[in-house]
Write a protein that binds this DNA or RNA. Structure first.
Lengths: 333, 333
DNA sequence: TTGAAAGCGATACCAT
DNA sequence: ATGGTATCGCTTTCAA
């Protein structure tokens, strides 16, 4: 049996109340006895039972993180950020993974609610309306990461339009007019349709029309990148000279497809990506990319929750992104 | 205030005891009332307070996972495996990250013990002796993943010698005699020195001597791979014809270093790696690799704990690996 | 099948 | 500064 507060109290010849106060640094006590007690607790191998503590204090030090099982290239970066911010605050991260199975989803959120989490961080996730309501009803703070879900839920993310616009601007300045958006360009989810819309909008602002815009793909995968120019378009007669890949892996897929077909990047096709993870650095040629600061996103989100426990208003926080120029874009005269 | 068991009991005109039994499917009760109660709980938005449950039953459904902050390319694969196995059992994963700071380490394990975790999974981690004892004293099951720590702690891992031997065998059959082990080849940790030893042993078994073996690097990084042939050795006069990289990223570093120097892989140097993640598939040329099944490692480890709660004996479980042949190795006459 | 009641281990309020 | 004690929400005998 584990050592309890009571045991320590007995050994110290004190009441549990006093020992509790000392061990949690709350209330008044003399530093002398405190020292004695701490030492004793240490020696006896005492560990607070957090469940009991949570129960008694009617709070929980746990927060939940929900990560989608697919497409989590940057998942652990974000988690690390959350974790860092968590360290000093004493919060605990309950990380869960989720897929499309609705029953499974219910179970996951059940676990989280069952643990009385104070907040739930949604990692690049589009959750159904009913779940949203459920969470709202339980009064837990919900923060969406890397994407804005709706006009109620707070979010910490990169500025999607800025990212897209930076890339379009960069490419047009290099002389490109026919540009493709490749990766997740489907219209069925919030996230991807926003990118599509931003792309079109940015093209317009650069005096380009929809005629200059091309789309391919329904997910952020390597395979989608590869197929786009092997199956989607005729690799020997591409109608565009540059592409914006919706994720790094998509860009790598493109590079490899070109390479495998004895084409040259960027001579035969210029490639840029969104995300800017290590992958873009170790690619040959190195990929020009708009880099998101995922760790910072996690860090800021967690702090937002910690400092802001009360405020229920929606907050959108944009974390700066950075254009990293490498060798995957050619200049067109 | 959230809905409690008592609330549900009142609404159902039953005692908390009965409702508890029903909602946990324990003990006897009539299926009729059960149906009513479940429905009611659902409607009222009842969520069990897991802290209270843990406290009352003196158990915990939480298990801890400790992940090193550096070198976690396969971290999330393992975690997914653990998570999968967790789903059906109702256990919860408490994921924590750890670095070299001893104070920080203490804090992390404190959190875990404080949550009364039933098990701690160490992800490719070498933890200090005192921590080991601490865990043992608290009677928590410790399972090491992807590496064998000592002769007391259970482990689920690939067979290190088999992996190394498979690679050496493969390379020698292709005619290579001078082989380098590049990546983490330092002698200060258990893990890396095992690989080094296995490498030497396997070389011997293939009639090669220490004269044929070369070593470079102290970590599993891309940079180490890159530097090995740019700074460690003269890229124009390498004393070896093939290398075994201790991690995929190291292999990619090598490929890039060669590519950047206008050399050809595998003509100028044959490269193989240990791990076999997606990276090796999307590399050009594709990397021949010995592939570990990380997800399976996680899955098995979790099941080992679940089914085996009692047995305190050390168990070592080896998860099969697979040689994946690609284009990074040349045949030498 | 159902209910009463005794904990589980800590917190926090009220006394002393 | 320290102690007594009700309480948190649930589980689990033991009785009915």
């Amino acid at each position: 049996m584990a050592v309890t507060l009571k045991d320590v109290a007995q050994a110290a010849n004190l009441s549990v109340a006093s020992v509790s106060r000392i061990l949690t640094n709350r209330g008044r006590y003399s530093e002398n006895t405190a020292k004695r007690v701490r030492q004793l607790a240490q020696e006896m191998g005492y560990f607070k039972n957090q469940s009991a503590a949570d129960l008694a204090s009617k709070t929980s030090r746990a927060v939940g993180v929900v990560v989608p099982l697919i497409h989590t290239t940057f998942g652990d970066e974000v988690i690390k950020g959350l974790y860092e911010a968590t360290m000093s605050s004493g919060y605990e991260l309950l990380i869960t993974y989720i897929d499309d199975d609705e029953k499974h989803q219910t179970q996951v959120f059940n676990t989280l609610l069952t643990r009385q989490v104070g907040a739930v961080f949604l990692l690049s996730l589009d959750i159904p309306e009913w779940l949203m309501n459920q969470l709202a009803a339980e009064n837990v703070t919900v923060i969406s990461l890397t994407t804005i879900l709706n006009d109620r839920i707070s979010a910490v993310t990169s500025n999607e339009f800025t990212m897209m616009d930076t890339l379009v601007d960069y490419l047009t300045k290099k002389g490109h007019t026919n540009i493709a958006l490749i990766g997740d360009t489907k219209l069925t989810t919030n996230i991807s349709s926003v990118r599509r819309r931003n792309f079109i909008e940015s093209m317009k602002q650069h005096q380009l029309t929809i005629e200059n815009a091309f789309f391919y793909g329904e997910d952020h995968s390597y395979e989608t990148g590869y197929r786009s120019v092997t199956e989607g378009y005729d690799i020997d007669a591409l109608p565009f000279t540059a592409v914006i890949a919706t994720a790094d892996l998509v860009g790598i897929g493109l590079v490899n497809a070109l390479t495998d077909a004895n084409k040259n990047v960027p001579k035969d096709l210029s490639i840029t990506t969104i995300d800017g993870m290590k992958l873009t650095e170790i690619s040959r040629p190195g990929l020009t990319t708009i880099q998101q600061n995922f760790t910072e996103i996690g860090r800021i989100a967690m702090n937002l929750f910690i400092e802001n426990n009360i405020d229920k208003q929606q907050k959108i926080i944009y974390v700066p992104t950075k254009l990293v120029e490498r060798e995957s874009v050619a200049t067109i005269k």
